[in-house]
Design a binder for these strands. Structure first.
Lengths: 166, 166
DNA sequence: CGTGAAACCGTCGCCCC
DNA sequence: GGGGCGACGGTTTCACG
């Protein structure tokens, strides 16, 4: 079971680095209550074990000129595994598509897209996405405003859950 | 117009820190072609100007025991601004809701949720989300698998666009 | 923006429990 | 097994040109 091999200090490290990924190791060590060397060893172990996939600056898309954010629901003609993979690979190559998730239910994929303006997005939509082979339907919804954008996972839920199991 | 006050070095800094938020300042300076002190000054300026909102470790939700990811489309009874704000504030207080975006079209909000398992999510769905006042309808879609999850914005699109304007 | 210097930090080897 | 101590080299971060 995942999560079992992590002790409370590891989880605190993950929570702290999720909240501030550029914290120095000594600050991190102070917060989790151990000295710097073992703290760094734990961080490296968590990175190598895949618990930490990377570190990213969270840049303000709007301030950078990406004024449009859109969710696109995509239905495919064929849901054979080979065709699904082809579509996913195509999404990875489209810069405007930031996220692509395969869903259950009537729609096959949900895409989160960004673009500098509506006309850029519409060109992408009509000339690339809708035009791609095997794409049956695309429904788009413009984001009017963002209300919450929390990174990663809720560690409070994790702790509650572990406390309840004990 | 946003983006105008940033020179090519600033954009390179943002792109590098988006790709690796824990890079040392000397490494960053080397990559953008200036020495460390002015590089650090630029980073601080970008942070204070809001271009960089923060830095976050990208943790693996599944490996941490969050096996369920769900998109929820929410329709409200009243779309008056006061009622929208109330709903948004409620989303901010729900740990399982990681993202909340207001949309145009038939659905009012899209929520990205995570949960340790389906029953945890279903409890949240029936006892909290659907039960909340002013919520008219909720349609959920389970994420079968993730195909792409790129952070932030595509800097190649930004550069293309600036090159075309010049 | 660059140089130099001082303080701090990341990292290693070793010892300890 | 993991944690702490001390020390070296690299880094951050000044003041100044």
């Amino acid at each position: 079971m995942p999560g079992t091999r992590l002790d409370p200090i590891d989880r605190k490290i993950l929570a702290e680095l999720q909240a501030d990924g550029r914290m120095t190791n000594v600050e991190l060590a102070k917060r989790v209550g151990i000295s710097a060397p073992p703290c760094l060893r734990r961080v490296r172990t968590l990175e190598e074990a895949g618990y930490i996939r990377g570190y990213h600056a969270d840049v303000d898309a709007r301030e950078l000129g990406f004024e449009v954010q859109v969710f696109a629901m995509v239905g495919l003609v064929s849901q054979a595994e080979a065709d699904l993979s082809v579509f996913e690979e195509r999404c990875r190559n489209w810069s405007l598509v930031r996220e692509c998730h395969m869903l259950n239910g009537e729609v096959d994929f949900i895409l989160k897209c960004v673009a500098p303006d509506l006309s850029t997005f519409q060109s992408f939509l009509t000339e690339e996405l809708t035009a791609a082979e095997n794409v049956a339907s695309v429904k788009t919804s413009l984001v009017i405003r963002g209300a919450k954008d929390a990174p990663g996972v809720p560690f409070d839920v994790l702790e509650d859950r572990l406390a309840r199991e004990a």
